[in-house]
Amino acid sequence: MRTPFLILIGLFLALTVKAQGVNYFPARNADWVTRSPEEVKMEATAVNQALAFALQNEYSGSRDLRIAILKGFEREPFHEILGPTKKRGGPAGMILKNGYLIASWGDIQRVDMTFSVTKSFLSTVAGLAADRKLIESTSDKVDSYIWDGTFSGEHNAKITWEHLLQQTSDWSGELWGGKDWADRPPREGDLDDWKFRKQNEPGTVMEYNDVRVNLLAYSLTHVWGKALPAVLRTELMDPIGASTTWRWFGYENAWTEVDGVELKSVTGGGHSGGGIFINTLDMARFGLLFLNEGKWEGKQFISSAWIQKATTPSIPNPNYGYLWWLNTKGERHWEGWSESLFYAAGFGGNFIIVDREHDLVVVTRWLEPSQIEEFMKILRKAF
């Protein structure tokens, strides 16, 4: 017969598990434990419809990603392939509920480019630096850490870590041969006018720009004093049981010296090649860590305080935080889903979606990007 004290302990543990939401974490190299939709109170028909939709709406660009990249950014002056690329596979993805695998499609073990999903990994490396006080505050000016002239000048000297993380810096310069003004210029108007335009005050206008994201990676490489892939591997990916197959690349010429050691400075995407090459399973682990507020099997690997900051809307763009997209009200809001939902997004339909309301993680690969909202609309019916 159980004593009242033991009953209270049991009730407390049950409530704790319920409050945490996620109660399963896959072991390294083990098969992911599955549950049927019905077992986690989801409607199987809607889940199957979402899966079929993903398979029927493959990204329309070439499977030869070198061709797709050059086509996708053909309007940019001076654009060229500077880092590794890889031919992609077909549509793939996973749906997790409370950590359990509810559905998957395609080859989830295949390593593919992930493009700007890399940005959310880069944001996390910045978060690890902040947690360890290598960066005292994201409101600090970057030139107090990086004093090699990269942030010199009246405008660039004002830039803070937060400006880089929210893509609101309007940094001006050239890095690894990439010119800031030549990255995603306006579709209309004279390029010379754009090149010599008046700069926006840092923090006032968001502009999606890979040169400036690569600048963040460069700056973090100097702060850490080591290559960022090694940081991500030892601090996060190995502890959460990720495979050894993922890689993070930079451009061929992107070398910098730190303490007498030549280090490769990686990219925040695959705009000109490079970025993180990873399989769907490892993407799902990363999403599951964020769903569980930075904890994995009870151990805190990145602080919940950082995750809160990273998923707080910036003033210039309510749908963007620290290199994460947010489902707050705005142009990118998905109707019917909680405003607490956030996601990493990359060229070609690569997504890691974290929905705290339903303890849900969704990963898609090579889904036509314009169809992600419809995919999520179909999946919403499962609840």
Rank of each mutant, 00 (worst) to 15 (best):
T138Y: 11
V33P: 15
L291V: 01
M42E: 09
F347K: 06
F12H: 02
A92F: 07
L215W: 00
D359L: 01
D143V: 11
F290D: 13
T221S: 10
I353Y: 02
Y100M: 14
G269L: 07
E38G: 11
V40T: 13
W161S: 04
A382S: 15
K119I: 13
R197Q: 06
F151C: 03
M1W: 10
G260I: 04
E188C: 07
S340Q: 11
V261M: 14
L101D: 02
D359T: 05
I315C: 06
D183H: 03
W366M: 09
Y322L: 12
V258G: 09
A44W: 05
A27F: 11
A19Q: 10
L367K: 10
Q308W: 13
D107Q: 09
I159V: 06
S338A: 07
S304Y: 14
Y208T: 02
G270V: 09
D180P: 04
L220N: 01
H271W: 15
E38D: 14
L55A: 10
K141R: 12
W306C: 15
Q167C: 10
S340W: 08
W147G: 04
L289D: 10
H155I: 00
T204I: 07
G10M: 02
N57C: 15
V223I: 09
I81S: 15
A126T: 08
Q56E: 15
L379S: 08
F277G: 00
I352G: 02
E374P: 15
W324L: 10
V261F: 07
P318T: 01
F301K: 05
A30C: 14
A19R: 10
I372F: 14
K158I: 01
N317H: 14
A92L: 05
A284D: 11
I353S: 00
I146L: 13
Q300C: 15
Q167L: 11
Q167K: 12
G275Y: 01
A230E: 08
S169T: 01
A19P: 04
V266R: 08
A345N: 04
D193K: 11
H79W: 13
G153K: 06
E76K: 09
T138P: 05
Y322N: 13
S304R: 12
L122W: 07
P185G: 07
G90P: 04
G287Y: 07
F286K: 12
S104G: 12
L215Y: 01
W181E: 06
V223A: 00
A305F: 15
Q167A: 15
D210A: 02
E174I: 11
M1E: 03
N57A: 14
R184T: 01
W176N: 03
E257L: 05
A103H: 04
K195S: 08
T267G: 05
L191D: 03
W246Y: 07
R63A: 02
